[in-house]
Design a protein around this nucleic acid. Structure first.
Length: 309
DNA sequence: TTGTGTTTTATTGCCTCC
DNA sequence: GGAGGCAATAAAACACAA
């Protein structure tokens, strides 16, 4: 459209035909637009309201075509205006208001409507089409901004949820690690008690290795932590181990001496089974770095939503 | 007054639909 | 193939701070 009718000749005619008709033709639409109770339907020329009346009713001192604001009356000025080189001229406030109303009703422009609007506003149909074109573009931009804002706030909400869940997950992970350590210590302690005699005689290699791998200080430290948490987990402990469990010393004595199968010798399956045997029905695989953690994916990564446990 | 950023009007080229 | 729509863009008009 635009390209098909474009051209300097047609532009000149646009200027001459549209911008030079600020009086009779232009006043008609404003009648219907500004008359109280009237809709922007086109009433034709029946109204007695003149263009000056329109300005007064509108409280505006602007002339219909703003260009005349700057060029005082006088034939010379008018002549100069009409013969000046082709220039863009903004539509007046009234024209824009009228077009806006029309746009609100329907943002697409049928040929008849375009012609009618052009006639009523004293503009070229092409100008009307261009105005609607640009108006649609502005509307689309605004709409995109709105959509962006909605998505942004939605994202912020989800991000906050994620952060909160991530924190909670970290907290729970630490707690699980602590409890697992305690359970393992208990397991080791009870094993030691039950196998004490055999151990003292056989001096199993693994016990030596375990003793070698952990300094006395470390072992006693772990034991101290475990004992300090004894009360916290006592109830859970009774659920985990039967009182006659071979893993649990009847006298509750804890030893810092560790005897247990070296887990590094276990296969993965054995390791899993080991963990399961400790804490049914909860599955606590041995927690190393990264275990039980939310996958370190970005928030946008949907893998996050398939909770790892 | 002037420089600069924003808004508005208009053009161009491409695309789709009938 | 012509009409009309849209995106990108140019350029005039406008707003405003310095």
């Amino acid at each position: 459209m635009a390209g098909s009718t474009g051209g300097s000749n047609s532009n000149l005619s646009v200027l001459l035909q549209s911008q030079r008709v600020p009086c009779a033709a232009a006043s008609q639409p404003l009648e219907s637009f500004f008359l109280p109770g009237s809709s922007p339907s086109f009433l034709g020329s029946r109204s007695m309201m003149s263009f000056e009346d329109v300005h007064q009713a509108n409280g505006s001192t602007r002339s219909f075509f703003r260009a005349f604001d700057h060029e005082d009356n006088g034939d010379d000025d008018l002549d100069e205006y009409f013969h000046q080189p082709e220039k863009k001229r903004r539509l007046t406030v009234d024209q824009v208001q009228f077009l806006e109303k029309s746009f609100e009703l329907e943002n697409k422009l049928e040929p008849e409507r375009k012609t009618q609007l052009a006639k009523d506003l004293g503009l070229q149909p092409r100008q009307i089409a261009i105005w609607f074109q640009n108006r649609r573009a502005r509307w689309k931009t605004k709409q995109l901004e709105k959509d962006y804002d909605v998505l942004q706030s939605s994202y912020n909400g989800l991000k906050a949820d994620y952060d909160s869940l991530h924190k909670e997950n970290e907290k729970l992970k630490a707690e699980v690690n602590l409890l697992t350590d305690k359970v393992l210590l208990k397991e080791k302690g009870s094993s030691e008690l039950s196998d004490k005699d055999a151990l003292s005689q056989e001096q199993p290699k693994k016990a030596i290795l375990a003793a070698d791998s952990a300094s006395e200080g470390e072992v006693s430290k772990i034991s101290a932590v475990a004992c300090s948490k004894q009360d916290e987990i006592s109830s859970a402990k009774s659920d985990i181990f039967d009182s006659d469990s071979p893993h649990y010393a009847a006298d509750g004595v804890h030893s810092s001496y560790v005897f247990e199968p070296d887990q590094s010798d276990l296969s993965q399956d054995e390791e899993d089974n080991f963990s399961k045997s400790l804490l049914p029905p909860y599955v606590f695989p041995k927690l190393e770095d990264g275990d039980y953690s939310v996958p370190h994916a970005s928030f946008e990564d949907h893998a996050f939503w398939s909770w790892p446990y």
